[in-house]
């Protein structure tokens, strides 16, 4: 069953067509990668899915509902969460608080109960804290829960962003370059974490990545964008041998080297 169907998405900035007539279907429970050279429109595509940009053309159907007219917070509340290419944590909040903010759509205590500290509020807060710590354990950050987010090392910040996204119990999580800036060890941990998102939590994953080894090992489907256009789609094997992909990555004339994975 398709969890997300984006059809004929086009986004134009001034004269620049950042995303050009892209159609993408994400099956429930899959891990899908979106790759492409710098400036290909990958992040813009994510921003359209999550409602930050309105597309100039095209529709997005998420979990059976058209979400084209919805605000980003409404889309997030429906269960589509994301991380950002240049990590956007709440820097001056603690690790635990960051995850608690991610749980916002699941907390409903009215203001009156908060002021009165009613038993139902205390139960809700208690549950939220327990759940947040569970998620922090899932990304191995529970021992740092009282640190300020900005004081975390880089790799931890990326994982905290994932924990925060998970706090909304998403059906779909969009990861924008989750291993950017990581060393090989950290990348391996991140790869495992992404797998566990799907295998243990049942979350469907779409990721933008430049690390081809990670992309090839983890994804069941890969879509390639180049200058805003989807130029190829398929599993690792298909993408690896597609001459247009190789050309996009290595430039004209490189297609003859088909068979070598673009690095």
């Amino acid at each position: 069953m398709a969890l997300l169907e984006a059809t004929n998405i086009t986004k134009i900035f001034g004269g620049l067509t950042a995303v050009n007539d892209v159609t993408l279907t994400i099956e429930q429970g899959s891990i899908v990668s979106v790759i492409g050279p710098n400036g290909a429109g990958k992040t813009t595509f994510f921003n359209i899915l999550t409602g930050i940009y309105k597309p100039d053309k095209g529709d997005v159907i998420f979990d059976g509902k058209p979400i084209g007219g919805l605000r980003p917070d409404q889309i997030a509340a429906l269960g589509m969460r994301r991380t950002f290419q240049n990590i956007r944590l709440f820097h001056n909040m603690t690790v635990l608080e960051n995850v608690l903010v991610g749980m916002h759509t699941h907390l409903h205590a009215p203001i009156w109960n908060i002021i009165m500290r009613s038993p139902s509020l205390r139960r809700e807060e208690g549950r939220a804290r327990d759940r947040s710590r569970e998620l922090l354990r899932f990304v191995s950050l529970d021992n740092k829960r009282d640190e300020l987010a900005k004081n975390l090392p880089y790799g931890d910040q990326r994982r905290l962003e994932i924990a925060r996204a998970l706090a909304g119990d998403p059906k779909l999580i969009l990861l924008d370059e989750p291993t950017a800036g990581m060393n090989p060890n950290e990348t391996m941990d991140a790869t495992n974490l992404i797998r566990r998102l799907r295998d243990q939590l049942g979350v469907t994953v779409v990721l933008i990545e430049h690390d081809m080894r990670l992309v090839m090992t983890i994804s069941e489907r890969i879509s390639v964008l180049d200058y805003g256009t989807k130029i190829a789609e398929g599993d690792g094997q298909v993408i690896r041998s597609n001459p247009r992909v190789i050309e996009a990555y290595l430039g004209k004339g490189a297609a003859g080297m088909a068979g070598h994975p673009p690095a």
Binding site: D73, Q74, A76, F84, M93, H104
Partner: peptide, 14 residues
Amino acid sequence: TAIREDETAAIAQG
């Protein structure tokens, strides 16, 4: 506080 820290990230949390 989330809004104060980063509006875009805050909206993305719903």
